[in-house]
């Protein structure tokens, strides 16, 4: 127990925790969306995220920036990030839809029980991760540093780095966008209807198949956004990065109440903060234990997560 570190580093720990938590939250939304609609733990979502990191890496590579390049100026960096955001999220979205079409849709037609979906998802996860592993020779690949490494500003002990601020702001913006999309648009209404009662929604003329495909696409897009920021933060990627992030993000989704969009946001940020503080308190190699212990304790007292409402019952 090291309270001094916690108190002295509190501002730094908070900013890093929030930045990391934003990434968790973005990935967690993918789990929550799919779970809310299909009652299915989309095990392959972590690989969708992993494909996003490589899409970002390749995009930067094609545009002439690899891990050996010098840091570009701010304008170029922003352009690079923007392009990679678009490419990575489209790529991840595409992968997510492909997974749905190959591994889940045939099962849905046969009305398979949830466990069968889970195994199919595990199979898809193996296929995606190992394909990428074979393609990249299982090597870790470096990612160029794009944003300046100096602090953006510091005031009263609070130091904020450009990447952290950007991660947090973009994540929040994306999440508000998603919230609006689900609450206000016609497609969003379709998603909520299918989440509430798929068969009744289908009777009312909602195209169930299309809504489900859309949900996977949305989850993939968000995972792509998360992948870009994760790559920049981590400085490298590998064919198996998805596993741990996926596990954390899923925990975040459960923490906030799975099936609940705002719950994923709250859960993700909370998990990021808890990990960050916990690492200072107990040492960084206990990070993952802390995350899980918090999750287990919370589930014992509040089995439906913090906000604990389903996507279907979110306000109309």
């Amino acid at each position: 127990m090291n309270f001094d570190d916690l108190i002295q580093g509190f501002p730094d720990l908070t900013t890093t925790g929030l930045a990391q938590g934003s990434i968790y939250a973005l990935v967690a939304l993918g789990y929550t969306l799919v779970y809310g609609v299909l009652r299915l733990i989309n095990f392959a979502h972590s690989e969708v995220f992993m494909f996003g990191t490589f899409a970002a890496l390749w995009t930067w590579g094609i545009m002439g920036y690899d891990s050996n390049s010098t840091r570009p100026d701010l304008g170029t960096a922003l352009l690079l990030i923007l392009v990679s955001l678009v490419v990575a999220s489209l790529f991840s979205g595409g992968v997510a839809m492909a997974v749905e079409a190959v591994a889940y849709r045939p099962l849905r037609k046969r009305n398979a029980p949830p466990l069968v979906f889970l195994i199919s998802a595990i199979g898809a996860s193996f296929v995606l991760a190992e394909l990428m592993g074979a393609f990249t020779e299982r090597r870790q690949q470096g990612i160029p540093g794009l944003l300046p490494g100096e602090p953006l500003f510091s005031a009263g002990g609070w130091t904020v780095y450009p990447l952290q601020l950007m991660t947090f702001v973009v994540a929040l913006a994306v999440m508000f966008g998603l919230d609006w999309f689900v609450a206000k648009t016609r497609f969003g209404r379709g998603i909520r209807a299918v989440a509430q009662d798929a068969d009744t929604a289908a009777l009312m003329g909602v195209n169930k198949g299309r809504v489900i495909a859309l949900v996977f696409l949305l989850g993939g897009l968000l995972a792509g956004v998360a992948a870009v920021f994760y790559s920049m933060k981590q400085g490298n990627t590998r064919f198996n990065v998805g596993f741990l992030i996926g596990l954390k993000a899923f925990s975040a989704a459960v923490l906030g109440g799975i099936g609940n969009l705002r719950g994923a946001l709250v859960g993700g940020l909370l998990l990021g903060l808890v990990e960050s503080y916990g690492a200072a308190l107990f040492g960084s190699n206990w990070t993952n234990v802390i995350a899980f212990v918090v999750l287990l304790v919370l589930l014992m007292f509040r089995p439906t997560g913090l906000l604990g409402e389903s996507l279907g019952r979110a306000r109309a």
Binding site: S120, G123, F126
Partner: peptide, 9 residues
């Protein structure tokens, strides 16, 4: 493991 995963699906 690609083959194994595909087999699972």
């Amino acid at each position: 493991f690609v083959i194994f995963g595909a087999l699972l699906i």
